[in-house]
Every structure is written in structure tokens, then in C-alpha cells.
């Protein structure tokens, strides 16, 4: 979706404001949000692309105002309700109502195993033959789906060169809505700065973007 989350190349956001000796968390509630988000994620009622798509659906002004962990809180509350693990009334009142859903909470003893899982979005390379190979010239498709995609607006319609084939991964677009795991080759595609941004870009600047077969056509 053409959302405000798709920030690459926007102007007017101000300078990058790096905080010296920044702590891991700035408030205790941020720790709880991180942990709640991870622990409820391990209930497997949604996937990472659904999580990202949920945040993208925040009202734009709210998205820009909210901090990272405020976005995570929004996402977690919304997905818990949408997946039927909590009701809106329970969330509003803070009081449980009705039978608990038949799910097993992540036990403390399983935390490290859960965090150290080594397989996420990568799929078996045999599931799909690559469409492109390193060195191929490609054009990022000019499409504007209203749902989740990981093709940033700033690359659409632009020509680049395949730098490398990362192998087969879950295509995020379909995964974010139906949960279907469509296998797709993911490539690092090199775009010259001037192809993306015009003559004012540095002549020796390049941007590499990880893009799927479905986002690309031969050029």
C-alpha cells in the first residue's frame, strides 16, 4: 500500500538525531511491550508480514507521531482482537470475559529455543526456479497494490541490475493477507543513485534493494 511507512526519499523529516550512549529501553513499559509482542507472536496466530501490514494500516498522522514501541502496542492489541484471542470489550475494560481461548502460552523454559529458531522466511530452493541471475538488467514493476508489498515506491519503474540471488523466500504480499506461503526468489538488486533520484544524486552512490521475482521484469 502507498502508505506513509514507505519513507525512502521523503523530504522534511529533519536531521538524524543520534543519542549518545542510548539505553536499550527508555521506559519500563517499552520492555513489557517488546516481550508481550514477542510472546503473543509465538502463539502463531499471525505472521511477521501480517504484523507489518497491521502497522502500515495505522492512520498516517498517528504512524508519524507514534514511537516504535507505541506502534508495536497498536499492532499487538489489534491482532489479538482480530484473531479472536481478546475481545474489544476485554481490551477496553481490562477484565477477562468468557472462556479463555485454547492456546498454550509460551513457557519461560521455551523462550531461548523460540528466539533461537533458525528458519523464518527462507524456503527450499527447489520450490522455484530463478527468473533472473546475477548481472541481469531488470525493471522494478510499476504497480501500486492497496495491500502489503515490500517493493518501495521509490524503486517502482526503475532499472537496476541483479547483484545476487538470495534464494527462495516467502513472498510477503500474499503472506500478509491470506498467510499463503508463495515461494519466490529474492534478489539484491543494485540501482544507481541517478536512476532513482536524477542528476543531483552522487555519481558513485548505489542503492541495493531486496526484491522478489514478482516485483521485477526484464529490462
Amino acid at each position: 500500500m502507498n502508505g506513509v511507512h514507505d519513507m525512502g526519499g521523503m523530504h522534511g523529516m529533519g536531521p538524524v538525531d543520534a543519542e549518545p550512549n542510548e539505553p536499550v529501553f527508555h521506559h519500563d513499559w517499552e520492555k513489557r511491550v517488546l516481550a508481550i509482542a514477542l510472546a503473543t507472536g509465538f502463539l502463531k496466530r499471525w505472521n511477521i508480514d501480517m504484523g507489518r501490514y497491521t502497522i502500515e494500516q495505522m492512520a498516517p498522522a498517528e504512524y508519524l507521531r507514534a514511537t516504535y514501541y507505541e506502534k508495536w502496542l497498536y499492532r499487538t492489541e489489534r491482532l489479538l482482537v482480530e484473531r479472536g484471542l481478546l475481545t474489544k470489550d476485554e481490551l477496553a475494560s481490562g477484565r477477562p470475559n468468557g472462556r479463555p481461548p485454547a492456546v498454550r502460552a509460551l513457557p519461560p523454559a521455551d523462550v531461548q529455543t523460540a528466539l533461537r529458531g533458525r528458519r523464518a522466511a527462507r524456503m527450499d530452493d527447489r520450490l522455484k526456479a530463478p527468473t533472473f541471475k546475477a548481472g541481469d538488467r531488470v525493471r522494478a514493476r510499476n504497480f501500486h497494490p492497496s495491500h502489503h508489498t515490500r517493493l518501495p515506491r521509490y524503486a517502482r519503474g526503475k532499472v537496476g541490475v541483479i547483484d545476487r540471488d538470495h534464494g527462495v523466500f516467502i513472498l510477503p504480499d500474499e503472506h500478509a493477507t491470506s498467510g499463503t506461503k508463495v515461494p519466490s526468489h529474492c534478489y539484491a538488486v543494485r540501482f544507481e543513485g541517478r536512476e532513482l533520484w536524477g542528476p543531483d544524486a552522487g555519481p558513485r552512490d548505489a542503492i541495493y534493494i531486496d526484491l522478489f521475482d514478482e516485483y521485477l521484469e526484464p529490462a
Partner: peptide, 26 residues
């Protein structure tokens, strides 16, 4: 956040000790 955590614990959807372990990790 406090209300959400307490609700999730009451409903058996999260174990507060697991939350502590997740925080400690990061």
C-alpha cells in the same frame, strides 16, 4: 500496557516469567 499484560496473564495467553526472560535476553 499494564492493563494489556494483566489481561493476557489472566487469560493464560502469556506467562509473566516468559516476558521477564524475553526482556532479559535483549
Amino acid at each position: 500496557v499494564r492493563a494489556l499484560e494483566s489481561l493476557l496473564v489472566d487469560k493464560g495467553l502469556v506467562d509473566p516469567k516468559a516476558l521477564d526472560a524475553l526482556i532479559d535476553t535483549y
